[in-house]
Write a protein that binds this DNA or RNA. Structure first.
Lengths: 119, 119
DNA sequence: CCGTATCCATATCGATACTG
DNA sequence: CAGTATCGATATGGATACGG
Protein backbone atom coordinates (compact mmCIF):
# COMPACT_ATOMS: atom_id res chain seq x y z
CA UNK A 1 0.00 0.00 0.00
CA UNK A 2 1.51 3.25 -1.11
CA UNK A 3 -0.73 6.18 -0.41
CA UNK A 4 1.12 9.39 0.13
CA UNK A 5 4.61 8.31 1.03
CA UNK A 6 6.15 9.09 -2.34
CA UNK A 7 4.97 12.68 -2.40
CA UNK A 8 5.70 12.98 1.31
CA UNK A 9 2.30 14.56 1.65
CA UNK A 10 0.86 13.04 4.77
CA UNK A 11 -2.00 14.88 6.36
CA UNK A 12 -1.57 13.46 9.83
CA UNK A 13 0.12 10.75 11.83
CA UNK A 14 -2.47 8.05 11.11
CA UNK A 15 -1.92 8.62 7.42
CA UNK A 16 1.77 7.99 7.88
CA UNK A 17 1.27 4.96 10.10
CA UNK A 18 -1.15 3.43 7.61
CA UNK A 19 1.58 3.48 5.01
CA UNK A 20 3.76 1.35 7.26
CA UNK A 21 1.16 -1.25 8.22
CA UNK A 22 -0.97 -1.09 5.08
CA UNK A 23 0.17 -4.25 3.34
CA UNK A 24 -2.18 -7.20 3.30
CA UNK A 25 -0.06 -9.37 5.58
CA UNK A 26 1.96 -6.82 7.52
CA UNK A 27 0.01 -6.73 10.74
CA UNK A 28 0.07 -10.53 10.81
CA UNK A 29 3.84 -10.46 10.40
CA UNK A 30 4.09 -7.96 13.22
CA UNK A 31 1.88 -10.06 15.44
CA UNK A 32 3.94 -13.21 14.77
CA UNK A 33 7.27 -11.48 15.36
CA UNK A 34 5.97 -9.95 18.56
CA UNK A 35 5.87 -13.43 20.08
CA UNK A 36 9.40 -14.36 19.08
CA UNK A 37 11.81 -14.10 16.15
CA UNK A 38 10.97 -16.23 13.15
CA UNK A 39 12.70 -17.67 10.15
CA UNK A 40 11.43 -17.04 6.65
CA UNK A 41 9.97 -20.53 6.31
CA UNK A 42 8.27 -20.33 9.68
CA UNK A 43 6.52 -17.14 8.70
CA UNK A 44 5.46 -18.60 5.38
CA UNK A 45 3.89 -21.56 7.11
CA UNK A 46 2.15 -19.54 9.81
CA UNK A 47 0.73 -16.99 7.39
CA UNK A 48 -0.91 -19.68 5.34
CA UNK A 49 -1.87 -18.24 1.98
CA UNK A 50 1.00 -15.79 1.53
CA UNK A 51 3.39 -16.38 -1.35
CA UNK A 52 7.14 -16.13 -1.09
CA UNK A 53 7.25 -13.07 -3.28
CA UNK A 54 4.77 -11.11 -1.24
CA UNK A 55 6.25 -12.23 2.07
CA UNK A 56 9.74 -11.24 0.97
CA UNK A 57 8.52 -7.90 -0.34
CA UNK A 58 6.64 -7.10 2.86
CA UNK A 59 9.61 -8.04 4.97
CA UNK A 60 11.89 -5.81 2.92
CA UNK A 61 9.51 -2.89 3.29
CA UNK A 62 9.20 -3.40 7.03
CA UNK A 63 12.97 -3.63 7.24
CA UNK A 64 13.30 -0.40 5.29
CA UNK A 65 10.91 1.29 7.68
CA UNK A 66 12.99 0.19 10.64
CA UNK A 67 10.26 -2.08 12.02
CA UNK A 68 11.91 -5.43 11.41
CA UNK A 69 15.49 -6.55 11.86
CA UNK A 70 16.92 -9.12 9.47
CA UNK A 71 19.88 -11.26 10.43
CA UNK A 72 21.43 -13.72 8.03
CA UNK A 73 23.65 -16.54 9.31
CA UNK A 74 26.39 -17.84 7.03
CA UNK A 75 25.52 -21.47 7.47
CA UNK A 76 24.63 -24.43 5.32
CA UNK A 77 21.73 -24.60 4.87
CA UNK A 78 21.26 -20.82 5.00
CA UNK A 79 19.33 -19.37 7.89
CA UNK A 80 17.75 -15.95 8.21
CA UNK A 81 16.01 -14.69 11.28
CA UNK A 82 13.56 -11.83 11.48
CA UNK A 83 12.75 -9.98 14.66
CA UNK A 84 11.13 -6.76 15.77
CA UNK A 85 13.15 -3.67 16.47
CA UNK A 86 12.30 -1.39 19.37
CA UNK A 87 10.39 0.72 16.89
CA UNK A 88 8.48 -2.34 15.76
CA UNK A 89 7.54 -3.22 19.29
CA UNK A 90 6.32 0.31 19.91
CA UNK A 91 4.25 0.10 16.73
CA UNK A 92 2.66 -3.10 17.93
CA UNK A 93 1.73 -1.46 21.18
CA UNK A 94 0.16 1.43 19.27
CA UNK A 95 -1.86 -1.08 17.27
CA UNK A 96 -3.31 -2.84 20.29
CA UNK A 97 -6.31 -0.56 20.84
CA UNK A 98 -7.22 -0.89 17.18
CA UNK A 99 -6.97 -4.65 17.41
CA UNK A 100 -9.16 -4.64 20.47
CA UNK A 101 -11.70 -2.48 18.68
CA UNK A 102 -11.78 -4.80 15.69
CA UNK A 103 -12.19 -7.82 17.89
CA UNK A 104 -15.05 -6.30 19.81
CA UNK A 105 -16.89 -4.52 17.03
CA UNK A 106 -16.13 -6.35 13.78
CA UNK A 107 -15.54 -9.94 14.76
CA UNK A 108 -17.43 -10.81 17.96
CA UNK A 109 -19.71 -13.35 16.28
CA UNK A 110 -17.43 -15.65 14.26
CA UNK A 111 -14.39 -16.28 16.44
CA UNK A 112 -11.83 -18.88 15.43
CA UNK A 113 -12.87 -21.70 17.71
CA UNK A 114 -10.57 -22.66 20.50
CA UNK A 115 -8.13 -19.88 19.86
CA UNK A 116 -7.45 -17.43 22.64
CA UNK A 117 -8.33 -13.79 21.90
CA UNK A 118 -5.64 -11.91 20.05
CA UNK A 119 -5.05 -8.21 19.46
CA UNK B 1 -9.28 -2.15 0.46
CA UNK B 2 -10.77 -5.58 0.68
CA UNK B 3 -8.43 -8.03 2.28
CA UNK B 4 -10.20 -10.88 4.00
CA UNK B 5 -13.69 -9.53 4.55
CA UNK B 6 -15.32 -11.44 1.71
CA UNK B 7 -14.07 -14.81 2.87
CA UNK B 8 -14.72 -13.81 6.46
CA UNK B 9 -11.29 -15.14 7.26
CA UNK B 10 -9.80 -12.60 9.61
CA UNK B 11 -6.89 -13.77 11.67
CA UNK B 12 -7.26 -11.22 14.43
CA UNK B 13 -8.92 -7.96 15.36
CA UNK B 14 -6.38 -5.71 13.67
CA UNK B 15 -6.99 -7.53 10.43
CA UNK B 16 -10.67 -6.78 10.72
CA UNK B 17 -10.15 -3.16 11.71
CA UNK B 18 -7.80 -2.61 8.79
CA UNK B 19 -10.58 -3.57 6.44
CA UNK B 20 -12.73 -0.78 7.83
CA UNK B 21 -10.12 1.99 7.75
CA UNK B 22 -8.05 0.73 4.82
CA UNK B 23 -9.28 3.07 2.11
CA UNK B 24 -6.93 5.77 0.95
CA UNK B 25 -8.96 8.64 2.42
CA UNK B 26 -10.92 6.96 5.16
CA UNK B 27 -8.91 8.01 8.16
CA UNK B 28 -8.96 11.57 6.90
CA UNK B 29 -12.74 11.41 6.62
CA UNK B 30 -12.92 10.07 10.15
CA UNK B 31 -10.67 12.80 11.44
CA UNK B 32 -12.73 15.51 9.74
CA UNK B 33 -16.04 14.14 10.98
CA UNK B 34 -14.68 13.83 14.50
CA UNK B 35 -14.52 17.60 14.69
CA UNK B 36 -18.06 18.16 13.50
CA UNK B 37 -20.54 16.92 10.90
CA UNK B 38 -19.77 17.87 7.32
CA UNK B 39 -21.56 18.19 4.05
CA UNK B 40 -20.40 16.36 0.97
CA UNK B 41 -18.94 19.46 -0.62
CA UNK B 42 -17.14 20.44 2.55
CA UNK B 43 -15.42 17.10 2.71
CA UNK B 44 -14.45 17.29 -0.94
CA UNK B 45 -12.82 20.65 -0.40
CA UNK B 46 -11.02 19.67 2.80
CA UNK B 47 -9.67 16.41 1.41
CA UNK B 48 -8.09 18.19 -1.50
CA UNK B 49 -7.22 15.65 -4.13
CA UNK B 50 -10.09 13.24 -3.63
CA UNK B 51 -12.53 12.80 -6.48
CA UNK B 52 -16.28 12.71 -6.07
CA UNK B 53 -16.47 9.08 -7.04
CA UNK B 54 -13.95 7.93 -4.48
CA UNK B 55 -15.33 10.17 -1.75
CA UNK B 56 -18.85 8.89 -2.34
CA UNK B 57 -17.68 5.30 -2.42
CA UNK B 58 -15.70 5.64 0.81
CA UNK B 59 -18.62 7.30 2.52
CA UNK B 60 -20.95 4.52 1.45
CA UNK B 61 -18.57 1.88 2.76
CA UNK B 62 -18.17 3.67 6.07
CA UNK B 63 -21.93 4.00 6.27
CA UNK B 64 -22.31 0.29 5.58
CA UNK B 65 -19.86 -0.48 8.35
CA UNK B 66 -21.88 1.61 10.79
CA UNK B 67 -19.12 4.19 11.23
CA UNK B 68 -20.76 7.13 9.52
CA UNK B 69 -24.32 8.38 9.61
CA UNK B 70 -25.80 9.96 6.49
CA UNK B 71 -28.72 12.34 6.71
CA UNK B 72 -30.33 13.85 3.63
CA UNK B 73 -32.48 16.96 3.88
CA UNK B 74 -35.27 17.41 1.36
CA UNK B 75 -34.37 20.98 0.49
CA UNK B 76 -33.51 22.96 -2.57
CA UNK B 77 -30.62 22.95 -3.13
CA UNK B 78 -30.20 19.46 -1.70
CA UNK B 79 -28.19 19.07 1.48
CA UNK B 80 -26.62 15.95 2.93
CA UNK B 81 -24.83 15.80 6.21
CA UNK B 82 -22.38 13.16 7.36
CA UNK B 83 -21.53 12.54 10.98
CA UNK B 84 -19.88 9.88 13.11
CA UNK B 85 -21.90 7.25 14.89
CA UNK B 86 -20.98 6.14 18.39
CA UNK B 87 -19.13 3.26 16.78
CA UNK B 88 -17.25 5.72 14.59
CA UNK B 89 -16.23 7.76 17.58
CA UNK B 90 -14.99 4.67 19.37
CA UNK B 91 -12.99 3.74 16.27
CA UNK B 92 -11.39 7.15 16.22
CA UNK B 93 -10.37 6.73 19.83
CA UNK B 94 -8.84 3.37 19.02
CA UNK B 95 -6.88 5.02 16.21
CA UNK B 96 -5.38 7.71 18.40
CA UNK B 97 -2.34 5.76 19.64
CA UNK B 98 -1.52 4.77 16.08
CA UNK B 99 -1.79 8.37 14.97
CA UNK B 100 0.47 9.44 17.79
CA UNK B 101 2.98 6.78 16.82
CA UNK B 102 2.97 7.89 13.20
CA UNK B 103 3.42 11.49 14.17
CA UNK B 104 6.35 10.75 16.45
CA UNK B 105 8.12 8.09 14.44
CA UNK B 106 7.30 8.65 10.77
CA UNK B 107 6.70 12.37 10.42
CA UNK B 108 8.66 14.33 13.03
CA UNK B 109 10.90 16.03 10.48
CA UNK B 110 8.58 17.41 7.77
CA UNK B 111 5.59 18.84 9.62
CA UNK B 112 3.00 20.88 7.77
CA UNK B 113 4.11 24.33 8.76
CA UNK B 114 1.89 26.28 11.06
CA UNK B 115 -0.57 23.48 11.57
CA UNK B 116 -1.15 22.24 15.08
CA UNK B 117 -0.30 18.60 15.73
CA UNK B 118 -3.04 16.17 14.73
CA UNK B 119 -3.62 12.53 15.55
C1' DC C 1 -25.48 20.68 -4.54
C1' DC C 2 -24.88 15.89 -4.47
C1' DG C 3 -23.91 12.64 -6.46
C1' DT C 4 -23.66 8.41 -10.64
C1' DA C 5 -21.62 6.50 -15.10
C1' DT C 6 -17.95 5.41 -17.90
C1' DC C 7 -13.54 4.51 -19.03
C1' DC C 8 -8.79 4.02 -17.76
C1' DA C 9 -4.16 3.75 -15.01
C1' DT C 10 -1.67 1.40 -11.89
C1' DA C 11 -0.78 -0.88 -7.43
C1' DT C 12 -1.02 -4.95 -5.27
C1' DC C 13 -1.20 -9.49 -4.92
C1' DG C 14 -0.68 -14.26 -6.71
C1' DA C 15 1.12 -18.68 -9.43
C1' DT C 16 4.83 -20.83 -11.12
C1' DA C 17 9.42 -21.77 -12.04
C1' DC C 18 14.07 -21.30 -10.98
C1' DT C 19 18.79 -20.17 -8.30
C1' DG C 20 22.80 -19.60 -4.64
C1' DC D 1 16.49 -22.95 3.06
C1' DA D 2 15.75 -18.52 1.45
C1' DG D 3 14.84 -16.21 -1.69
C1' DT D 4 14.41 -13.85 -7.13
C1' DA D 5 12.23 -13.62 -11.92
C1' DT D 6 8.51 -13.46 -14.84
C1' DC D 7 3.99 -13.17 -16.06
C1' DG D 8 -0.69 -12.37 -15.13
C1' DA D 9 -5.26 -11.40 -12.43
C1' DT D 10 -7.78 -8.23 -9.93
C1' DA D 11 -8.91 -4.39 -7.16
C1' DT D 12 -8.53 0.15 -6.10
C1' DG D 13 -8.31 4.70 -7.26
C1' DG D 14 -8.52 8.67 -10.75
C1' DA D 15 -10.45 11.86 -14.83
C1' DT D 16 -14.11 13.41 -16.96
C1' DA D 17 -18.78 14.01 -18.14
C1' DC D 18 -23.39 14.04 -17.04
C1' DG D 19 -28.11 13.52 -14.16
C1' DG D 20 -31.77 14.47 -10.23
Amino acid sequence: MVTRRAENAYHCGIDAAMDVVGGKWKVLILWALDERPRRFGELRRELSGVTEKVLASHLRELEGDGIVHREAFAEVPPRVEYSLTDLGRSLNRALEPLGLWGREHVLAQAPVDGDPPRP
